[in-house]
Design a protein around this nucleic acid. Structure first.
Lengths: 338, 338
DNA sequence: TTGTACGCGTTATCAA
DNA sequence: TTGATAACGCGTACAA
């Protein structure tokens, strides 16, 4: 059994109240007793029980974070940013992975409610609105990261997908490309839509027609998804001189397929990713991409969540912050041939 | 304020004791009242307070996990494996990142003690023994993953570094290589030592002399570390025909430098990594490496931790499990020239 | 400056 | 089958 303030009180010959106050630097305690009590506490190896404290104060100092997968290079940095803020603010982090399974997601949210988390940050999830309701009913503030739902009344933090895609496409246009394809992610929802919109807007701004036949969709956002999408593209006889990919992983998969088919990148086909995951710099050729400030997004989400739960959830203006990234030009893009 | 069993009791006109029993399927409760009470609980949206339950039962159903960084491709999968087991066993996961900072690490462990975690899993950390003592004093079982300390009395799970390195080196030897270099990680400690041992043993078994001048150390286990190590190697005029790298990230960095210097891989120099991170398959050429069953390691660590805390920490035989991986041959290795 | 008494939400013991 | 009461460890009015 762990040491309690009562144990300390017995030894110090005072009441447990006095011990409680002494350890929490309460004003109305004589210096002598405070010092004496702290020394005893140290000797006994006293560690306050935050479960008891939480019960009393009905606040857990825990934030829940839900991701799809923990070993996902695009989200690890976001969680790392969240964790950094929480650690600085003496909050703890409850992490759970939904694996895109609604049943699991429900169980996770239930579990977090049972543990009375002070807030929840949900990453890139198409959350069932009923789950959110559950949280709101317990007046647990929720912050979405990389919101995937169109109409949102929930505070969220993300990056400007449309802008990123616009800049990437503009980069290719500036290199003289006119036949630019888009390799999308069929299961991404809103981010994919937004990136497609940015791509189309850039084309339009350059006075180019949008061509439906240059848009392909992979079954997921992994290298295999990019590989399948580009294979479909090649099979249909399309040979765009440049490809905008939903993300870096898909671009990497597409890159491999192009090279396997004897196409040189960027001489025969330029290619851009999205996200600037660390490995995008290490493929051959290094990938031109759009940097998402992931750690910053995580930090912003955590700060927003903390602010919401301090505000008492009453004046929770459903704020949405979009952080901007920046174009990272590497060697996978080059001038259009001819 | 959330709904409590007392609220339910008031409405159902019973005592809160009865409510507690009804909700927990206690035997001595009439079917009628049980059903009635459960219905009221549902209507009110009752969610049990596990803080209160934890205070009463002095068990938190929380496991703490400490990693260096959350966005680390080598550890994400381990944590994902841990999380999967915990979720299945209705445990929650407390995640914290130490960033190799002893001060942070201390604060993290303190925090976990305050939250009365049922157990702690520490990943790849050179933990200060005094911290472990703190945990043991609270009789919190600890499981190490990828133990970095030589003499261990703490249960741990890991992979067989020496064996992996041995197999990789043997693969190169079988291809006819005799000048094989080793690019180590200066800050890795035991894993690096073990991998070096495996490399040396393979050389010895093949009747080759170990040559100190073919061993180089990078300042870290990142691509830049591999790049610096191989640059040092080249600068010193050494031209091994094959390189064994501490891990995949270093191998990727080294690969880039070799190619930048006009050396073809594998024709001029074969190279192997370690770990089989997902991206090792997507560099050019795809990397020959040694697969570590990371998710399995995570699962094993979680299961071990749960077993220890159920055993009551008395008969905690300091078990050490080493999972074996397997050689993954890709295109970065080829026959020795000549 | 210190102590008494109570409550946070739940479970367990004992009695009815 | 149900209820009254105590207890988990801590914080805090209120009293001394």
């Amino acid at each position: 059994m762990a040491v309690t303030i009562k144990d300390i009180a017995d030894i110090a010959q005072v009441s447990h109240t006095t011990v409680s106050r002494a350890l929490r630097n309460h004003s109305a305690i004589s210096r002598d007793t405070a010092v004496r009590i702290r020394q005893i506490a140290d000797e006994l190896g006293y560690v306050p029980n935050s479960i008891a404290r939480g019960l009393k104060s009905s606040s857990s100092h825990i934030l829940g974070v839900i991701v799809h997968r923990i070993d996902d290079p695009s989200w690890g940095a976001v969680v790392d940013g969240i964790e950094a803020v929480l650690q600085a603010e003496a909050y703890s982090l409850f992490l759970a992975a939904s694996h895109r399974d609604p049943v699991r997601e429900k169980a996770i949210i239930r579990n977090m409610c049972e543990h009375r988390v002070a807030g929840v940050i949900i990453c890139a999830s198409q959350v069932d609105p009923r789950q959110l309701q559950q949280l709101q009913q317990m007046s647990v503030p929720v912050v979405l990261v990389g919101n995937q739902v169109k109409e949102t009344v929930t505070p969220s933090v993300g990056h400007d997908d449309e802008n990123g895609s616009y800049e990437l496409t503009r980069h290719l246009l500036a290199l003289g490309h006119t036949d630019i394809g888009y390799l999308g992610n069929a299961i991404a929802g809103k981010p994919n839509d937004d990136r497609l919109i940015g791509y189309r807007r850039a084309l339009a701004d350059a006075g180019l027609l949008f061509r439906e036949e240059l848009v392909f969709a992979g079954p997921n956002g992994l290298p295999i998804g990019g590989a399948l999408a580009v294979e479909q593209c090649l099979r249909l006889g399309q040979r765009p001189s440049a490809l905008v990919c939903y993300n870096d992983m898909m671009a990497i998969g597409a890159l491999q397929v192009l090279q396997k088919n004897g196409l040189r990148v960027p001489q025969d086909c330029s290619i851009v990713g999205f996200g600037n995951i660390s490995f995008s710099a290490y493929v051959t050729p290094p990938l031109t991409t759009f940097h998402q400030p992931k750690r910053e997004i995580g930090r912003a989400a955590a700060l927003l969540a903390l602010r919401l739960l301090q505000a008492g959830a009453n004046d929770a203006a459903p704020e949405t912050r979009l952080l901007r990234g920046e174009l990272v030009v590497r060697a996978s893009t080059g001038p259009a041939a001819g």
